[in-house]
Design a protein around this nucleic acid. Structure first.
Length: 381
DNA sequence: TCCGTTACGGTTGAT
DNA sequence: CCATCAACCGTAACG
């Protein structure tokens, strides 16, 4: 606690360059930089998983990447559990049950029967399948809606799209509900963010799901989760795929990558069924984080920043992590044909194709999307 | 020494 | 627009 070295460089001082932005952070005991309260950059998270896949022990990963072992442990555990390296959804409140669609129904009921009681509306919402027992608004909520919204008449239903996932169970929604006893099965409260190699999958043409309506969601960094143990290298093939992909990404070196990095998160969020575990939520926060972190303008950005030369003998492990993106990546983009498996990793309806990055946004988060990411996810508590 | 767990101080975003 | 609240974060420390 008190020992934090925190050197809050809240300014841009030395950030003279483009990387400029708010490069502030603190330094942990290992010399690594972190931003309190914010997730580590995806690049680092990815590296952690990659190194683990390669058989490097968590304690070594911790030292090499200069990330606390507790964090490494947490990220790997999460990865094992969910298949995603992405941080959870930060902030926000419980999924709102009073979606525009619900409000609309309430309004209809009210219009149909001005004397209807809130509890009756509640029953009808359930009876009509507008809501299920998990997301039906409370009587008090309904009363409030009647008072505040219906009274003054309002809400264009357009916004409905935002929350639609839950109730309507659009595309993949349905499946979601089925899976679990999650409290809020239907409500997409989680923000999902897609994983780094968006374009990868897309580019590959492996656009699996042509599912028009299905919420594509992203490809979490889902490696084939078959590794027997965190240290197993057995599944190297699967890893290969993974690495190649990331490599491809990182490899873009000079340009797109860095930019992408910061965009991934925001660009990739999409609502998805609670079934997906609601874990991979990356939200704007994530992207912002990346921005805040002292990132290099290009390619390896985060990672390299986090890994001072001294910590990472760039030349020593070419194959694993040579430091700069360049060396790290492998020229071959075989993922092209392997993209699908990755994408398929998760429950149905969850694939996000990089190429469609823009699209999903368009159809899924029309409203809040403007400057921030938007979407919500299914948070199930 | 390793690693899972958790208190803590922090950020975020919906309400 | 502000406050509240509940979610998540990573670090540090404990066992």
């Amino acid at each position: 606690m008190g020992l934090r070295l925190c050197f809050q460089v809240r300014t841009r001082r030395w950030a003279s360059e483009q990387a400029a932005e708010q490069t502030y952070g603190e330094v942990n005991q290992l010399g690594g930089v972190f931003v309190n309260g914010r997730p580590l950059p995806n690049a680092i998270r990815l590296r952690i998983v990659e190194l683990a896949q390669l058989g490097i022990r968590p304690c070594d990963i911790s030292r090499q990447l200069r990330v606390s072992h507790g964090c490494v442990s947490k990220i790997l555990a999460r990865y094992h559990e969910t298949g995603s390296i992405l941080p959870g959804a930060i902030g926000g409140s419980k999924p709102r049950v009073t979606t525009p669609d619900v409000v609309k129904h309430i309004r209809d009921y009210k219009h149909g029967d001005p004397g209807i009681f809130a509890w009756e509306i509640r029953d009808r919402l359930l009876a009509d399948g507008v809501c299920d027992k998990y997301n039906v608004p409370s009587v008090s909520s309904i009363s409030r809606i009647l008072r505040n919204k219906i009274g003054s008449l309002s809400q264009p239903a357009a916004a409905g799209l935002l929350y639609e996932g839950g109730v309507g169970g659009g595309g993949g929604g349905g499946a979601a509900g089925g899976k679990a006893p999650a409290p809020q099965p239907a409500l997409p409260y989680n923000h999902i963010y897609q994983y780094p190699y968006p374009s990868a999958v897309a580019a590959s043409g492996a656009k699996l799901g042509a599912h028009p309506g299905a919420p594509v969601s992203a490809a979490h960094v889902s490696l084939p989760r078959s590794w027997p143990s965190a240290h197993s290298v057995s599944n190297i093939l699967g890893i290969r795929t993974f690495l190649d992909q990331s490599a491809a990404l990182a490899g873009t070196e000079g340009s797109p990558y860095a930019a992408k990095m910061e965009e991934w998160p925001s660009a990739n969020r999409s609502a998805f069924p609670a079934a997906s575990q609601g874990v991979n939520a990356l939200d704007k926060s994530a992207s912002e984080t990346d921005i805040k972190y002292p990132q290099a303008p290009s390619g390896l950005s985060a990672v390299s920043t986090f890994l001072p030369p001294c910590a990472y003998p760039t030349s020593s492990q070419p194959g694993v992590y040579g430091g700069p993106a360049g060396s790290y990546l492998s020229p071959a983009h075989h993922w092209q044909t392997q993209g699908s498996p990755l994408a398929h990793h998760h429950p149905p309806g969850m694939a996000l194709h990089g190429a469609e990055l823009a699209t999903p946004l368009a159809f899924k988060h029309p409203t809040r999307e403007g400057s921030r990411e938007g979407s919500s996810e299914s948070g199930f508590t």
